[in-house]
Design a protein around this nucleic acid. Structure first.
Length: 217
DNA sequence: CTCCCGATAT
DNA sequence: ATATCAGGAG
């Protein structure tokens, strides 16, 4: 695993590569963000944004999602994967907002995570992006980058990855670093063809060196 | 652990 | 054709 100095080096490089990294899910308020993040499971941000463009015109409030039938909502998000469970979760989530939170989105992770379709990752994103709470949401990119760069161990669960990152990264940098790691994973350290040959972190990346060696032979 | 699942890149 | 995508629930 990387030491303190090596991690500091990585964090600084992340900042240099992606100084303006931020949430790419288009939203106008916490409620739209919750819906967008629930929809984003196992699906690209680009597709979510395409769907929410029309969706957010039709559905403005939790009530709006409940006056339509489940089938209608399913049709409206059908081009997104896992649309049946997502539609069901969204209606249940909206009912909870009305019943328990006066139609507003709660700001604490503990409350967010109780909502249907909202797990640890989604709760962290909403708390961080909508309410400015320090958080590190471990999604597929953050997990992959953390493991390739040996910020954590290969066999760590997503929860263990999150705990390790919170321990090794200063709290004031959690949110920025989290978004920079997503950009780094999405646009550079990609799942399929990571751009190791042009990676400024190659010198501290065992995985990258391993990959470079393989290709050279 | 499996299932949910369409769009897109490779 | 297949892997992957800002995961979560049962």
């Amino acid at each position: 695993m990387l030491n303190k100095t090596e991690i500091r080096f990585c964090l600084d490089e992340f900042e240099r590569m992606f100084p303006d990294a931020e949430c790419e899910l288009i939203h106008q308020n916490p409620f739209e963000l919750v819906i967008a993040v629930v929809l984003s499971a196992q699906c690209t941000d680009a597709l979510v944004n395409k769907v929410t463009k029309d969706l957010f015109k039709k559905y403005k409030t939790p009530e709006d999602y409940l006056v339509v039938s489940l089938e209608e909502l399913q049709q409206d998000i059908r081009s997104i994967g896992l649309y049946r469970t997502k539609a069901k979760n969204i209606q249940k989530l909206c009912q909870s907002l009305i019943d328990e939170y006066d139609g507003e989105v709660p700001s604490s992770k503990e409350e967010l995570i109780k909502l249907a379709g909202v797990g640890r990752k989604t709760a962290n994103v909403v708390a961080s992006v909508a309410f400015g709470e320090p958080a590190i949401a471990v999604d597929t990119h953050v997990e992959r980058v953390s493991k390739r760069l040996a910020f954590c161990r290969w066999k760590d669960s997503v929860l263990e990855v999150e705990k390790t990152l919170m321990k090794k990264i200063p709290k004031e940098e959690w949110s920025d670093t989290h978004h920079r790691m997503i950009f780094f994973g999405r646009y550079h350290c990609k799942a399929k063809n990571p751009n190791c040959s042009e990676c400024p972190l190659l010198e501290v990346c065992r995985e990258g060196k391993k990959r470079m060696k393989k290709r050279a032979v």
